[in-house]
Design a protein around this nucleic acid. Sequence first.
DNA 1: AGACGTTATATACCGTAGAATACAACGCGG
DNA 2: CCGCGTTGTATTCTACGGTATATAACGTCT
Lengths: 122, 122
Amino acid sequence: MAKTRYPGLTLRIMTSARPAMGPGKAQLLEHIEATGSISAAARAMEMSYRRAWQLVEAMNRDFVEPLVSTETGGKRGGGARVTPIGRDVLRQFRALELRASGAIRTGVGAFDRLLKKPIKKR
Amino acid sequence: MAKTRYPGLTLRIMTSARPAMGPGKAQLLEHIEATGSISAAARAMEMSYRRAWQLVEAMNRDFVEPLVSTETGGKRGGGARVTPIGRDVLRQFRALELRASGAIRTGVGAFDRLLKKPIKKR
DNA sequence: AGACGTTATATACCGTAGAATACAACGCGG
DNA sequence: CCGCGTTGTATTCTACGGTATATAACGTCT
């Protein structure tokens, strides 16, 4: 999964009520896509299973269709997959991050010079 | 003070350690500028004085010069003013928000159609 | 039948961010 | 000299987000 971060900014898409998509949920979706499991994704992110599950539940609730489908039992004991709309949401969000990041890149430099510690880059 | 929000996104400028500037601190600066007092700004935002003061302290610590200067005693009992660099930081941050918001405006529309509840607008 | 690794859910616990409260210092004005 | 409204600081309390833990249901495989 992409470990891409966008230096110096965090972007959150807000609904009227609460944050619908942000860096955390996006990364979780990527880990679920990579591992096929909520619990494996949670372990990879060093996040409790409960929290990961709650984030998945929130995403499935807030969007018109579930972003993650799950099944219990079976060969692997169960699993989770990112749905087509889930991949779509993820791709769109990453694109928005990139565009926002690109739009402010120059301005961030001036801002950086006013800070003691530099902007987060990695 | 400007009550401008940028529909659908929140932007935070991150240093290597922690968020250096975001919607909350920006709004606090505007209230301090408008009222000439940390406590009045806190009351206006329905925030505890302590929290407002901590945010001011963090900003004064993280930037090369204080964004807010204060004095105790005197006619009004004391007060706080946004320094020139403080106004500069605020202006730059609001500009960054605008540019980021503008850059993703079209994409946010597509995102919106995937959400049950619409994007925050006000 | 039983073991395994998941999802799904409940419950108890904890760490900490923030609120509430209290109080000293300051400086002007009555 | 005292009161007022600040800043600045310490202390206590509370609400809550998140962790840890336990357990049930599920389906496949041995």
